[in-house]
Design a protein around this nucleic acid. Structure first.
Lengths: 246, 246
DNA sequence: CAGTGGTCTAGACCACTGC
DNA sequence: CAGTGGTCTAGACCACTGC
């Protein structure tokens, strides 16, 4: 009954073996070769099929379980999840998400300042003495339609930001290019109604629903690099995610 | 410079060793024994200190990285994240969240039906022929204040639901008690403005902001057990989460 | 170059499930 | 009871970082 894996493993590839397995199983699920609800062989058998050790096979399975593609039960086995799975909510930027979706995002920089931080922002970013911030607001549109109003603060010791740079590129892209490796973000999603100013910029009626998001992002040295408050048109944007039981 | 770990490891405990380490480090971070931004010893040294193998130590570290408490960098080392971390968005229920927060949630069951599913719901839950659904709406309040309006559909072959049961217990608790092991959920968070009906029940002005959430939950056999649409008062509720770079 | 985390192996023993 | 995933060990070799 269980489906055998037909995954090419390239031991000379720089891609880790467990990740080749992850990609292979993801591909088989996407292509339909592994049907929703179908059962996999036990992990010892699968490891043998692919000439891998059991820990390596397990590491691949663990990742797929965390991604929400497989479910496992001790004493029973491993199954492909019987429902369509959305992409896991990742640490990504709006600009990248839009670009990946084939859209052409456009950005208008509404304000841009550089200087010392207000106490509240200094506290949020835990700024050391002498470190200032860039503070700017942007309006992001897709196909001429306004989508998001974004206010952000960025430590000024991680990169040099300019108004022109922010108009032409996503903020995360600029920071990554400057050598910032983002590791995690704390974020809060809520709702609000548009005030007159927001309504005019986002081209909706005052009183329309907005999805609000506050985020602070941390890099691989543990520093809080960036914090921001965003408002999205609720008719054009929502946050999708897959939660996995720990 | 690096802080030594002072964690009791009990090899006779049913709690896995790696999880004892996770709990120990979490505790040291919470108590301040491990300061934000401080560096840990390398993992081989830490494993030796606790008399554990390196893979076991690594498994604990991996979990803490995923939880957003540690950041690691190859060739450099491991650090405690320098910012306050919120709890990871988990697969949990509103009722449990409120109860954990020391609140006393109250539920009013506004409607309750049992029968065949509408085609859209049957599709969402991928119901097999002959399986019906419970369909109900609830108003959840905390300290007499309305917080959420919830409409849910539950497969009728996983548990027997009653109006009284739903009034006195959280839905997830009832399902877990009936033997359902939830594994993952797909959810979408957005915003809306309250219509007259919602406004009256939630005791806000019509036109107030609401946080909306749609969710479908999957159990350990891969079945979609439950789907629902919820609306929360935006002035009292938001979704917090920590995203970790994959 | 020394130090760090990342990957991988070949085992062992155990807990849980369903018959 | 047989079958499954869960935990754990003691190594090995490698890639990357910062000096």
């Amino acid at each position: 009954m269980a489906t055998a894996l037909n995954i090419p493993i390239d031991r000379s590839s720089p891609v880790p073996l467990y990740h080749q397995v992850v990609q292979g199983i993801e591909g088989m699920i996407r292509s339909g070769a592994l049907e929703p609800g179908s059962k996999l062989e036990n992990e010892i058998e699968l490891a043998a099929q692919l000439n891998l050790s059991r820990p390596t096979m397990r590491k691949a399975m663990d990742e797929l379980v965390r991604a929400g593609l497989l479910v496992r039960k001790r004493g029973v086995g491993t199954q492909v999840v019987a429902s369509q799975v959305r992409r896991h909510l990742e640490l990504s930027s709006l600009f990248d998400d839009l670009a990946r979706g084939g859209k052409a995002p456009a950005t208008r920089v509404l304000s841009f300042r550089h200087g010392p931080a207000e106490p509240e922002i200094a506290e949020t970013l835990q700024l050391p003495p002498g470190v200032g911030v860039y503070h700017f607001t942007r309006l992001r549109s897709v196909d001429e339609k306004p989508l998001a109003l974004m206010e952000n603060w960025v430590r000024d010791d991680v990169a040099e930001l300019t108004e022109v740079g922010l108009r032409d590129h996503g903020m995360y892209q600029i920071l990554r290019d400057a050598g910032v490796n983002f590791r995690l973000a704390n974020q809060r999603i809520g709702a609000a109604v548009a005030d007159a100013h927001q309504a005019e910029l986002l081209e909706v009626a005052a009183g329309s629903a907005l999805v609000t998001m506050e985020r602070t992002a941390v890099d691989d040295t543990g520093r809080s690099v960036e914090t921001g408050r965003h408002a999205y048109r609720a008719d054009s944007y929502s946050f999708e995610m897959t939660l996995v039981q720990r």
